[in-house]
């Protein structure tokens, strides 16, 4: 899409959308929102960047193998931490993080790291789904492998 108006308006709008997405992810245990909602907002901002600035610029900024590594690492850590929470609650282990004071950002134990991991996975997955809808495959999205 070669539109100067769309480029300038989205250039002004994208940082606010991404900051709002990160806010929804980070404050998911205190206010409405969470990993899925904030991750979908972040993914929508990445899809907007791809459709406005073109596929080449977006592939340069969001590299395919890099994003895939982030998503897989987030999934593995999600499994580890969630499994630790389940097993630790069942066996009565001591919680190494602690609960913190109610209402502060670093409270709620493992909920905020899990929200961050879920947000990363959901944002990257939505971006990949939109890329698949547009391109059909990841044929020339990965020049490094």
């Amino acid at each position: 899409m070669k539109s100067s108006i769309a480029k300038h308006v989205s250039g002004l709008l994208l940082p606010f959308v991404q900051v709002f997405g990160i806010y929804v992810i980070l404050f998911g245990h205190l206010s409405p929102g969470g990993g899925f909602a904030g991750g979908s907002i972040l993914g929508a901002s990445m899809i907007l960047y791809r459709f406005v600035y073109g596929a080449e610029a977006s592939d340069r900024k969001f590299k395919y193998h890099y994003m895939l590594k982030i998503a897989c690492t987030a999934l593995i850590f999600y499994g580890l931490i969630k499994g630790y929470v389940f097993v630790g609650a069942f066996l009565g282990w001591h919680n190494p993080v602690g609960t913190g004071t109610v209402g502060s950002l670093f409270s709620g134990g493992f909920i905020m790291p899990l929200n961050v991991l879920v947000g990363a996975v959901v944002a990257i997955t939505f971006y990949f789904i939109a890329t698949l809808f547009e391109e059909g495959d990841f044929g020339n999205a990965d020049p490094h492998q």
Partner: peptide, 26 residues
């Protein structure tokens, strides 16, 4: 249910419509 409202506005009105419009363009 503000949690569901955020998710519905982001996914239902945002991502799904973007995917529909991309499919229409294809």
């Amino acid at each position: 249910a503000p949690d569901l409202a955020i998710t519905e506005a982001a996914v239902g009105a945002g991502i799904t419509s973007i995917l529909f419009i991309v499919t229409l363009r294809k």
